[in-house]
């Protein structure tokens, strides 16, 4: 394995940050993007799964549900009372 799970997690975090407010990304979008970048030999679905777990457990990203689950940056949501 050429890419470490930590490095994949970092890269996913950058991708989520870049798209924040423009497009919501699903776990599958991040996985597909990483595999496209590194090729299946270097980066498997299971590697991406492990990376997503590292990313979410670090608290840098959170899951959101908008009629489907997405990965996004932590923020105060519109429905929450002040």
């Amino acid at each position: 394995m050429a890419v470490t799970h930590e490095a994949l997690a970092d890269e996913m975090f950058h991708m989520v940050s870049e798209y924040y407010g423009k497009k919501n990304l699903k776990a599958g979008d991040l996985t597909k993007a990483m595999i496209a970048k590194y090729g299946e030999a270097e980066c498997t679905k299971d590697d991406c799964k492990a990376a997503i777990r590292i990313l979410m457990d670090s608290g840098r990203c959170v899951y959101s549900y908008f009629g489907g689950s997405f990965i996004t940056l932590p923020h105060k949501e519109g429905a929450a009372p002040d």
Binding site: G21, K22, N24, F66, G67, G78
Partner: peptide
Amino acid sequence: PKTCEVPTLIAS
């Protein structure tokens, strides 16, 4: 505009 993301809303 203050409470919702328009692209998310359209996609919903």
